[in-house]
Nucleic acid binder design. Structure first.
Lengths: 150, 150
DNA sequence: CTAGTTGCAAAGGATTTGCAACTGA
DNA sequence: TCAGTTGCAAATCCTTTGCAACTAG
């Protein structure tokens, strides 16, 4: 989805909640759409510093939460206590592999795993709302670097 | 595995690392083995308060980290920024369903999912070290409570 | 005009760390 | 003995919150 479209949807979302579109909110949404990978709140903070809004850290956190609530962004944690965000509107669901060497995030999707998860939930009479699947290890690059230094 | 056996292994582990067995460490390991479910560092802290060692919060954290390192415990986060621990020595690997209503943790294991994960890692030339699979939603009880109140 | 938003700094929760006093082998 | 351990409080990291000054509609 193009940034302008996301922005428009965000405006609708805000209007429905009787909230206002502001400069910091606009800048944060646009920055989120300008990256095609995963980012932290802190990174977002530094990006909006470079735009002209100069949004405060608190505003960044507040807006990120708003965007997650509106399903514009998905959040996940990196396994060390920090949240990572990515824009999802118009993207299909996927899971992640995280490299312990370089922190790179790789995406994957497995219909089969998705289906099995639903099956398991059903078998346990568990109402599935969300799932987290993260593979941790070493990406091809770091894997090579590792075996070379060994 | 019985508590005494775990304790013995812990002693071996410590000896190999030239570390010492102490009263707080013993109490923490035993407390971990006395529960058959998942616990937080804070819960562990309150348990050791009740034993005679009176270990400090810092000691609890330090020892939990040590036990995770030695693979006596596994840690996972609850999705809200707190670590949960469980003893694993002598237990087979499993994944978790977490109830958003009552925070209860249910365990499950799917050979098929395990296999698929390995397959995906391999396809991506990713060296799999660890994975996190957490299903979030509502357990049978909370699910019922929810639909009744609706 | 005025409810909603912001920036700031302070508070919060979970966890780690520095350090002097202790203690197990 | 003495390297390793502890308790304590302070520090850290990430995130949220209180509040008075602002601003979008």
């Amino acid at each position: 989805m193009r940034p302008e479209d996301a922005l428009e949807r965000f405006e609708v979302f805000l209007r429905n909640k009787k909230l206002r579109m502001t400069r910091p909110r606009r800048d944060i949404l646009l920055s989120a759409w300008e990256t095609h990978s995963h980012f932290t709140a802190e990174e977002m903070f530094s990006w909006v510093q470079q735009r002209d809004s100069n949004a405060a850290r608190a505003t960044v956190y507040r807006t990120l939460n708003l965007l997650v609530e509106g399903k514009f962004l998905a959040s996940m944690n990196n396994g060390q206590g920090t949240q990572l965000y990515e824009h999802i509107l118009g993207h299909t669901h996927h899971d992640h592999m995280i490299c312990r060497g370089c922190n790179r995030v790789l995406e994957f999707r497995s219909e089969e795993i998705e289906r099995l998860q639903e099956e398991i939930a059903e078998q346990n009479n568990f109402q599935l709302v969300h799932h987290v699947l993260r593979l941790e290890g070493y990406c091809p690059k770091c894997r090579t670097a590792q075996s070379e230094s060994a």
